[in-house]
Design a protein around this nucleic acid. Structure first.
Length: 434
RNA sequence: GCCCCCAUCGUCUAGAGGCCUAGGACGCUAGGUUCUCAUCCUAGUAACACGGGUUCGAAUCCCGUUGGGGGUGCCA
């Protein structure tokens, strides 16, 4: 039988990292087994499940490359099928009508638990049991005629021929009810696999207040989809060796439910940023070019010529950990108004004699025939030697003057890239007595 | 309250009775490389929650305790 998995979120406007991790595991498992990965939108309840909310789910999945093999199923279209099953259960004595809890709202359809101890095999947790007395009868159709989650979920999984139900372990308790439902309907059980939760820094389940809890947050902050995908897979699964960075193909080939752990995991942003930076470094130059241009035009700066852009990328790519860094630390490459780091200015430009040295050095630079890194360095060191000074006493003031920053790419490459005009005029602004 | 799940460095994890004086990664610290920052390299830091068993031998198996989480809805 071919494997069929599904991701069944209720579209409520945002996609949680815990949820999307479940989607990723389903996708990976399906792809690994050459099976199908499906999407079912559980949009039944009164929860405002708007078209925009559905879009958000679709966007998150598309961004992460989670392609589905069939048209998404909207659970709200399945109400008749759910109710038909409820009728059958009523007819076969597996359900009864009652004003459960004496609400006065009228009669609901209540499923009758079999009265025997429940047990099922979980791919991750092992054998799970529950005493008969601990699972009570439950409502499957509300008194207003609407099917309840448990009914809808199981009926749809059966009709979609789902073979593996992979979801968060907050569903374990529900599963005992679901198993009883499958049995009452005479359907065979799918394989269940319950994933541990992803928790926040306080060890609590993620909530809206935690920030960075939604897939969209990561996209907006300029992280890479492939890095997030890889990182999320690692939160609960390991290959068993020391490898942590995997291509998508490797993940598809190596992913296995048997290597999924059963304890909750915290999302460590620092470790994630490191992985993201590794992915950034591996990006082909074309991607950098495209993204740089997007960001530069987004800021309203003039787009430089291709040769200049490529040189800037060459200098920056080792230093960029996520895309917004481009706009933040590379301004000075693209416009004359660039921010100055106050501490760097104080330390390097306000230092004793710094501006005088800058002026003297500017004279030397101005006299160079070509503005190449080697020549610039030779000129600077020669001047330093003549004065019996340290090269660093010249290097630092220049760096801060032309870039506004205390750190950055190799100075002489930086100067060569910026070019004579920019460098000389920027130095002039700070120089004195030279 | 009752039921269920979980428990290895700060964090993610390896470990399926002897290979463990517990390995890797992130972080942190120190050193190296460099004009600086980042990268990179080297070293260091740091864990089997606790108590009982079982066994020649336990991080690994069993029981209990503690802690964390979930469930206990005519929510999903």
């Amino acid at each position: 039988m071919t494997v069929r998995c599904r991701f069944a979120p209720s579209p409520t406007g945002n996609v949680h990292i815990g949820n999307i991790r479940a989607a990723i595991y389903n996708w990976l498992f399906a792809r690994n087994r050459g099976g199908q990965f499906l999407l079912r939108l559980e949009d039944t309840d009164r929860e405002r499940s708007t078209p925009e909310a559905v879009e958000t789910v679709l966007d998150a999945m598309a961004w992460l490359g989670l392609d589905v093999d069939e048209q998404p199923l909207f659970q709200s279209t399945r109400k008749d099928a759910h109710l038909a099953v409820a009728e059958q259960l009523l007819a076969s004595g597996h359900a009864y009508k009652e004003d459960k809890g004496g609400t006065g709202r009228g009669e609901a359809v209540v499923f009758r638990m079999p009265g025997t101890d429940m047990v099922f095999e979980d791919e991750i947790k092992g054998t799970l049991r529950k005493a008969a007395a601990d699972v009570k009868d439950f409502v499957i159709v509300r008194s207003d005629g609407n099917p309840v989650f448990h009914l809808a979920n199981v009926v749809d999984d059966i009709s979609m021929n789902i073979t593996h139900v992979i979801r968060g372990d907050d569903h374990i308790e529900n599963t005992y009810r679901h198993v009883a439902l499958y049995q009452a309907m005479g359907a065979s059980l799918p394989t269940f696999a319950h994933l541990p939760m992803i928790v926040n820094a306080q060890g609590k389940p993620y909530s809206k207040r935690d920030g960075d809890a939604y897939v969209g947050d990561f996209r907006e902050k300029g992280y890479l989809a492939e890095a997030l995908f890889n990182f999320l897979v690692l939160l609960g699964w390991s290959a068993g060796d020391d490898q942590e960075k995997f291509s998508r193909e490797e993940l598809v080939r190596r992913f296995d439910l048997s290597r999924v752990g059963s304890n909750p995991a915290q999302f460590d942003v620092r470790k994630f940023e490191d992985l993201n930076a590794q992915y950034m470094r591996d990006l082909p130059v074309e991607v950098y070019r495209e993204e740089f241009i997007r960001r530069i035009t987004g800021e309203g700066w003039p787009v430089p010529d291709a040769a200049y852009l490529d040189r800037v990328i060459g200098l920056l790519r080792e230093r960029v950990k996520k895309w917004p860094d481009v706009a933040e630390q590379a301004v000075y490459f693209f416009r004359e108004e660039y921010p100055f780091d106050e501490k760097a200015v104080r330390k390097r430009l306000d230092a004793e004699g710094a501006r005088e040295r800058l002026g003297a050095l500017r004279e030397r630079f101005a006299g160079l025939r070509t503005f190449a890194a080697g020549e610039l360095e030779a000129a600077l060191r020669a001047l330093a030697d003549e004065r019996g000074a340290n090269a660093a006493d010249f290097i630092h003031p220049v760096r801060v003057a032309v870039s506004g920053q205390g750190g950055g790419p190799s100075l002489f490459d930086l100067l060569e890239t910026l070019g004579r005009d920019r460098v000389l005029s920027r130095m002039e602004r700070w120089a004195s007595g030279g």
